[in-house]
Design a protein around this nucleic acid. Structure first.
Lengths: 189, 189
DNA sequence: ACTTCAAACTAACACTTGTTAGTTTGAATT
DNA sequence: AATTCAAACTAACAAGTGTTAGTTTGAAGT
């Protein structure tokens, strides 16, 4: 039986600091100070700094993988699937703004888990690309460069962690809905 | 008369490494090794690690500011201005993929120049927001949440450094043109 | 040949890093 | 009252950090 609570506190505190300064610039002493304890005490709950990063990133990456799996196997059409993907990103980001910063900016500091992470990310991108291509084939989506659409969507969705916290007035559902409209219809009147 | 060439080499080498691992994770010894010299030798050309970061980021930030100034004072309509902004980003990014990573991810490690940088960035965002609002007023742009359009565009443009190097087949002009189409018309057929 | 000087070097510094070992605390359980 | 144990502590480590001081190298200009 592990003290899962205290460990979770450490991971959350660390994620907050990682968002501000990045993994490498945050020291174990920084994390400890933010919790009001000494650095050595952290090791009663976690085994290494690396383990904190792994906990933040891998759990998020797997949430995305799982969400994508549901969406791609649903029988919605492509545009509906894309909307659901926007919702997936907004939801996960809204529940974990701090961790999303690490997922985006500190994944390269993963050690043992780097390969696993890269595999998940690659598969996720492939799934998204497939949905776009299916949309082009079914004439739901305009037949221009699918990589550019993929890039544009993914860049925006990956940056959500920077904007979601600033838009607390808009609830996640509304935010996702407005954002989908921009992707799908563009900004032109 | 300063050895501006060697200094520039250091800055470029550092930017490459900063892109891979981030400012904090790159040591002066890393930079030196990449140039085939010893860390202490770097100090014949630069005064500190911080100065390298400043050189990378501030020059880029000022290029954006200058470009924006030309665009906002032109007498194009709003959609044309937005196209020109896409071109601005693609051009600067294509000429400096490494530095753009630092601009996006390491600006918070600026010290003396942090305030200056934040001011430039804030003004840039305001200018872009104004162009969008003008487009809404002139009925060129759809009257939905302008912050979401701003966010979507800016996220994509800021992530260009990740994608431009992978798309060497597409020339910058074409890339910018395709990307503008996605922003303006969306992905729907 | 002599001087100059950019640009490299060696050696060292004070400080910070992640982490370990061993110890103390204090509340809950027996 | 005695025991247990999670969770804190102090003290220390080996390695790595940015940076400085002083020295050597070697090509270019006189």
């Amino acid at each position: 039986m592990k003290p899962e609570n205290r460990k979770e506190e450490i991971v959350i505190t660390a994620a907050k600091l990682f968002k501000e300064k990045g993994y490498s610039a945050v020291t174990m002493r920084d994390i400890a100070k933010a919790m009001g304890i000494k650095a050595a005490s952290l090791y009663n709950h976690i085994s290494s700094k690396q383990e904190i990063l792994k906990n933040i990133i891998i759990s998020l990456a797997e949430q995305f993988t799982q969400g994508m799996s549901l969406i791609k196997n649903s029988n919605s059409n492509s545009l509906e699937k894309l909307k659901q993907i926007v919702i997936l990103h907004v939801d996960i980001t809204a529940r974990n703004t701090f961790g999303m910063a690490s997922l985006n900016n500190d994944w390269m500091h993963l050690e043992e888990q780097l390969e696993h992470y890269l595999k998940l990310r690659h598969n996720y991108e492939d799934d998204l690309r497939n949905i776009i291509n299916q949309g082009i084939n079914s004439s739901e989506i305009t037949n221009s460069n699918p990589d550019i659409m993929l890039f544009s969507m993914l860049s925006t969705l990956r940056s959500l962690y920077l904007w979601v916290p600033k838009k607390e007035d808009l609830n996640p559902k509304e935010f996702a809905n407005e954002l989908s409209k921009v992707f799908i219809n563009g900004i032109k009147k």
